[in-house]
Amino acid sequence: MTGSPDSTPSPWTDPDRPPLREADLQRALASAGGLWREVRVVAETGSSNADLAARAAEDEGLVLVAEYQSAGRGRLDRAWTAPARSGLFFSVLLHPEDVPVARWGWLPLLAGVGAAEATTRVSGVDVRLKWPNDLMVGERKLAGILAERAGTGVVLGIGLNVSLREDELPVPGAISLALAGAGTTDRGPLLRAVLREIETLYRRWCAAGGDARASGLHDAYVGMCATIGRRVRVQLPAGRLLVGTATGIDDDGRLLVDGPDGPEAVGAGDVVHVRPGGEAPQA
């Protein structure tokens, strides 16, 4: 893991992709009594999730932002990479001690709601959620979230495409804020907004003991979820394929699918939205 752009300047040549300033982010986010107590920006690392997992015994509120990740991972252990400074690639460490572990499955959904709401507000792009926690613009993927248990806590990693050009996208089904016509691609204000929104939702959720309905998280997620009401194809972990209509989200954050054998709650799986003609877009 290399040093912060503030402490160890590194050359950059693309004027559309200036480096983030660690000192500015620390000053704006790490206020007394706030959730975020340390914000660090590094020029390059393998995986920000792995770096924070190694610090899992520390108090919650750590934020690690990587300008470039050489070994980034997405859900289902998929490899993920993007050009340096082309997006927001960061992880946070949380210890929801007042919430039963059985309810921790809501954390990646919570992060999805916070990231989508903040991104829509700052960029002007209408961002929706695909269950469980992909951020979408139309049928194209803007961001993904990876949650991993680490010691007695959870590390949440977020990768959001900001200025990627069409020829830089990892897959044809991806998109960036720039390609979506965002009003701004300034990563500093966007990161601050996302972290503040996640903090607000997290504090409310923890105060409710992780009850997604009592905290308002369930309603917020359902209101932003583009999967509900759609015909979906779900590749389940055991290899079984479930095709049906997504009808809602249960109290555990599982996707409810009305399949050929009746309603089924899906806790994990690779979901594809099926177009009316039966064709599934690329994941």
Rank of each mutant, 00 (worst) to 15 (best):
A212D: 06
R103G: 10
R187L: 08
A23K: 03
T119K: 04
V42N: 04
R233A: 13
G244R: 05
E22L: 08
Q69R: 01
Y202I: 01
R192E: 13
A53E: 15
G61S: 08
D251H: 15
R275H: 15
T227N: 03
R165E: 15
R21Q: 15
D77V: 07
R204F: 00
G33Y: 00
C225V: 10
V154C: 10
R254A: 15
V194C: 02
D24P: 14
D134P: 09
T13L: 12
G153F: 12
R78P: 05
R203Y: 02
Q69F: 07
L146D: 06
R187V: 11
E60M: 12
G210I: 01
L35R: 11
H273T: 13
C206R: 08
S48F: 02
G74N: 01
G124R: 05
G105Q: 12
S215L: 09
T2L: 12
L241N: 12
A84L: 00
R140A: 10
G159Q: 01
R78N: 08
S47H: 02
D77E: 09
A66I: 00
L241Q: 13
G269D: 02
R128L: 03
R213I: 09
R204M: 00
W205E: 11
D16C: 05
H273M: 12
V155T: 02
Y68L: 14
P108N: 00
L256H: 11
A214L: 10
R128V: 00
P170D: 06
P132S: 00
L236D: 10
T2H: 09
G124A: 06
G34I: 07
L52A: 11
W131H: 01
P96A: 03
P96K: 03
R85G: 05
L76I: 07
G124Q: 07
D219P: 11
S10N: 12
S215R: 09
V232I: 05
V234G: 05
Y221P: 03
L146N: 03
I145N: 05
A246G: 08
K130G: 05
L20E: 07
P5A: 06
V274K: 07
A43N: 15
R121V: 11
E58S: 14
T200G: 08
R103C: 07
E60W: 08
Y221G: 08
V42S: 00
V42Q: 03
R128K: 01
G144W: 06
Y68C: 11
G278D: 07
D251V: 12
N133H: 04
V243A: 15
E199G: 02
V222T: 13
D16F: 11
A71M: 07
D252F: 15
R78Q: 03
M136R: 02
V271M: 01
P18R: 03
A268L: 14
E168M: 14
W104P: 04
A246R: 04
S163L: 03
L217V: 09
A56S: 15
R37I: 02
T2V: 06
W205R: 08
